Amino acid sequence: MLFDPGTGTLKSVSVEAAFVEAAQLLELAEEAAPIATDVNFTDVSHDNTAKTFDIAASIPVDVTISPSGQPTFSATAYVSPAFTTGGDINATSLPSAVLELAHLLQDAERASETNPNNINIQYDTDAGTASITASIPCVRSVEASGKVLTTVTPYLA
């Protein structure tokens, strides 16, 4: 599914790739956080046999009730790398971008005729978390320079 990254932090041009890109950036930001912060909520790995990026995230969320009685979940901005928005998303932090892209991807899966189920999102209001699990198809290649690349395979129209 096409994605307009605009001029923000993300550069991918499919929702599938933008989700993996944002999750990887979030994991790297967690690793770079001061030790006192102790954040390790996101894991992005590659399964060479299954040819997938596997993502597991437990993003802290704030839960509020809107004036009309609607529950609202907002990702907590628990890491502070520079992040700019643009294009097809409105998020203003990496955790928010991962959550927003996960929802965009899940909505696109539900609307797809092939009905894939590569991403799941569950909210735990007691713990204040949004748990995301995903298995996104990818391919590996080697550039002429010898650099090994693993690239998301878009699977949604």
Rank of each mutant, 00 (worst) to 15 (best):
E143W: 00
T52F: 02
D4P: 01
G146L: 11
S112N: 14
D88G: 06
V44P: 05
L2W: 07
I35P: 00
F83E: 05
F41G: 00
T114G: 03
V139L: 04
E16A: 15
I136A: 07
N40Y: 00
V142S: 06
V79C: 05
F3D: 01
T52I: 07
R140D: 12
F53S: 10
P116E: 09
G69D: 10
A75N: 11
S58C: 04
G128K: 10
T133E: 04
L2Y: 10
T49I: 13
P95N: 11
D124G: 05
T150E: 01
V13I: 09
V13N: 07
D126R: 13
P71N: 10
A97Q: 14
H103D: 08
D107F: 08
N117K: 11
T151E: 02
T64Y: 08
F41K: 09
K147C: 02
L94P: 02
S135G: 09
N90T: 15
G146M: 11
P116L: 05
D126K: 13
E113R: 13
S68Q: 08
A77H: 02
I35R: 15
Y78G: 02
T85K: 03
S14M: 08
A97G: 12
T49M: 10
L2S: 08
E30G: 04
T92F: 03
E30Q: 11
G146D: 10
S14T: 15
Y155R: 10
K147N: 12
L149I: 10
D126V: 12
Q106E: 09
V44D: 04
L25Q: 10
L2R: 14
P116F: 06
T52G: 06
Y155L: 03
A57Q: 11
K51P: 00
S145D: 15
V98A: 12
A50Y: 02
L25Y: 09
I89A: 05
V142W: 00
T49G: 11
V20E: 07
S112C: 07
T114H: 13
T92C: 00
P81L: 00
I35Y: 08
D4F: 08
D62R: 11
T72R: 14
F73Q: 04
A32L: 11
A17G: 09
L156R: 07
S145Y: 05
E16C: 07
P67C: 12
S145E: 13
D88V: 07
N120A: 14
V44L: 04
N115P: 00
S131H: 04
A29N: 01
D43C: 02
Y78V: 05
F83A: 03
A108Y: 02
G8M: 08
L105Y: 07
A144T: 15
A97P: 12
Y123V: 07
V20C: 06
A144I: 14
E109M: 08
A18P: 01
A33R: 08
T114N: 13
A134M: 12
D124P: 04
V148H: 11
V152R: 02
V44H: 03
S66P: 11
Q122Y: 05
F53C: 08
N120Y: 06
V15I: 15
V63K: 13
A102R: 02
L149N: 14
Y123Q: 01
E100G: 13
S12P: 00
E143Y: 00
A108Q: 06
P34R: 09
D107W: 02
T133M: 01
D126E: 14
A77D: 14
N117D: 14
L149P: 01
Y155K: 08
V98R: 09
